[in-house]
Design a binder for these strands. Structure first.
Length: 256
DNA sequence: ATGGTGGCACCGCCA
């Protein structure tokens, strides 16, 4: 049994105890984290000593930042995407045992008519090229993280209100599916075809969790060699339920 | 309802 998880921390230092408690309770083999919001020199290594995990990370001041926790040793393949700008604090590619793990924090995009949204689309294209140029669909590859895309109407609470949103529109869905077509299966969707299951609720909206006005923006994607052995994939909302509205959810996939 | 809150670092930016 192998367990792989992903978590948008929205500041690792602010949510260190949540991560430590969750690791102790769930004991995943691998945890990928996004939005650590900490520079490498300030990464809370001291506080994570003794948690039983190898950790690799790449951050910047205030924004973005990614990390991978793993029980097995981690060999970093690269930080950031090929091309300019590398945007290093949004991606770690690593080899862990026989598995390649790509942790991404994909740009949110701000507004549909902004440069930032164009950058987001380009980011999907560059990521697709990276997969195509460096791996084969027959390899064991996991792509996971905050992908900032809700491809279908069932992936968000009110698709009519949010049509042409930077995380939900046909153009973006096409960019996402173009990468999926290369060889990735959405493990949560593989196990659950029903709507209403979300990984993010906007913490600016009051009662978002209570009203389930959420989005499915976090994913664990796997190539066939891994997807065929995935026995379960579920969302753990307990940290969000028990604590602050700005706490996110864990997404977990279990494999034979 | 076209805002809201929260995190970081600064006096605004990003989600």
């Amino acid at each position: 049994m192998m367990k792989i998880a992903t978590f948008n921390a929205n500041s690792l230092r602010a949510r260190l105890q949540i991560v430590l408690d969750w690791l102790a309770k769930e004991s995943p083999d691998i945890l990928s984290v996004q939005e650590t919001k900490v520079q490498d020199k300030d990464f809370p290594l001291k506080d994570l000593e003794g948690c039983g995990y190898n950790i690799v990370y790449r951050g910047q001041k205030s924004y973005n930042g990614v990390a991978i926790f793993s029980k097995e040793p981690i060999e970093v393949l690269r930080f950031g995407l090929p091309g300019e700008p590398a945007d290093e604090a949004r991606m770690i590619a690593a080899k862990i045992g026989q598995i390649t793990v790509i942790n991404t924090y994909i740009p949110q995009g701000f507004e549909i008519d902004s440069e930032k949204y164009q950058y987001k689309l380009a980011w999907f294209n560059r990521l697709g090229e990276y997969f195509k140029n460096n791996f084969k669909p027959s390899d064991k590859v996991i792509w996971l993280g905050d992908l900032n895309v809700a491809p279908e109407a069932i992936d968000l609470h009110s698709p009519k209100t949010h049509k042409n949103n930077v995380c939900f529109n046909p153009e973006l869905t096409e960019h996402f599916y173009s990468i999926c077509k290369w060889g990735f299966t959405d493990l949560f969707r593989m196990h659950c075809t029903a709507g209403g299951h979300y990984t993010f609720w906007d913490y600016r909206a009051p009662n978002a969790l209570k009203n389930n006005t959420g989005w499915r923006l976090d994913y664990i994607m796997a190539t066939e060699a891994l997807a065929k052995n995935c026995k379960a994939c579920h969302i753990d909302i307990t940290p969000r339920k028990l604590s602050r509205p700005s706490d996110h959810t864990f997404l977990i996939a279990e494999f034979d």
